[in-house]
Write a protein that binds this DNA or RNA. Structure first.
Lengths: 166, 166
DNA sequence: TACTAAATAATCGTGTACAATTTAAATGGA
DNA sequence: TCCATTTAAATTGTACACGATTATTTAGTA
């Protein structure tokens, strides 16, 4: 059903050939898988008082702090319009502090509080708990992850190359 | 607290071992890849006046109509809280109609208008245009898609089995 | 020094997402 | 027939997500 010319004189079939079926689209597969994974995380993160994007932000902050908003955005692929309110929420929850960098007043430094550090201990059990629920073989997960990582690298290059459709 | 006792006499390494590094997480890879793909679609969909979720909804509607809100939600993995406003927006754009099913007044039937059908022709070029920008070999894409599809099927089962953490 | 350009967050407006609740309609008994 | 139960959408409240703009600060340069 691929090599059809569809330029014949007769009425073209009113067709699945033109618009790809939803379930055949890689993009939709990524979209669905991402949403389902977020749902799997939810019950694990709820006891910690974190949403999934907040958990990702905390992972980056735990890894190295203080970090600027820009650095967090780089690591997470998010911009300040998304991060600023998210960081304000976890600040309101007492997990991080935000302060202007005295050396460069344009920057805002984000750092975990004692409570934020303590949460790290609880959070350690999350990846293992989640892994138990993943339905693929470890080898397959590894392979999937590897392919995705390469894919993401290429997509980022592509996005950087034509951010504007130039 | 799976294998490591962490009660050893020496200071446990202050470590990447506990909290998985962000770039090693499959879940984050899915999250990033999904976001990047949406960005790739944006410039292709903008001329059509559609966002990416709206495009997905139109794909389902083009495939078979009329469809109820519930059927669309099933196909897309979204619930009425997300779909109702989305459908109202594309209705406001003149692409679909929404009406109560006379046979069962609880249901709402969604159907493309003539304008919505016409848009389908323009939309046909989108998948090919996008495919050109994808950075992996066709074989790899196929394999990635296959793995994801299986993964999604299993995740859905898992989500259905314990929607509640029972 | 004064003045432009670049960098950095924050803000604004629109559009998803989802849990929980509400409203309305259909269904299945007593 | 009447009523409890179930089903289907819509609504409410909170939280992302991003394009575009704005405000502030720093850096660069004549």
């Amino acid at each position: 059903m691929t090599a059809k010319t569809t330029t014949g004189p007769t009425q073209a079939p009113a067709v699945p050939a033109g618009v790809a079926r939803l379930d055949q689209q890689l993009c939709f597969a990524l979209y669905s898988a991402s949403g389902l994974m977020t749902k799997l995380y939810r019950p694990l993160l709820e006891p910690l008082g974190l949403t999934y994007p907040q958990y990702l932000a905390m992972l980056v902050i735990w890894e190295k702090a203080p970090r600027t908003v820009g650095e967090l955005g780089e690591a997470l692929g998010l911009d300040s319009a998304t991060l600023t309110p998210l960081l304000k929420r976890i600040e309101a929850g007492g997990l991080v502090t935000r302060r202007r960098d005295a050396a460069d007043e344009r920057r805002v430094l984000v750092e975990p509080t004692a409570k934020g550090q303590a949460l790290r201990e609880q959070a350690k059990s999350v990846p293992a708990a989640l892994a138990c629920q993943l339905p693929l073989e470890p080898g397959e997960l590894k392979s999937l992850h590897g392919t995705l990582t390469r894919f993401i690298g290429e997509l980022r290059k592509a996005a950087a190359a034509s951010p504007d459709g130039d």
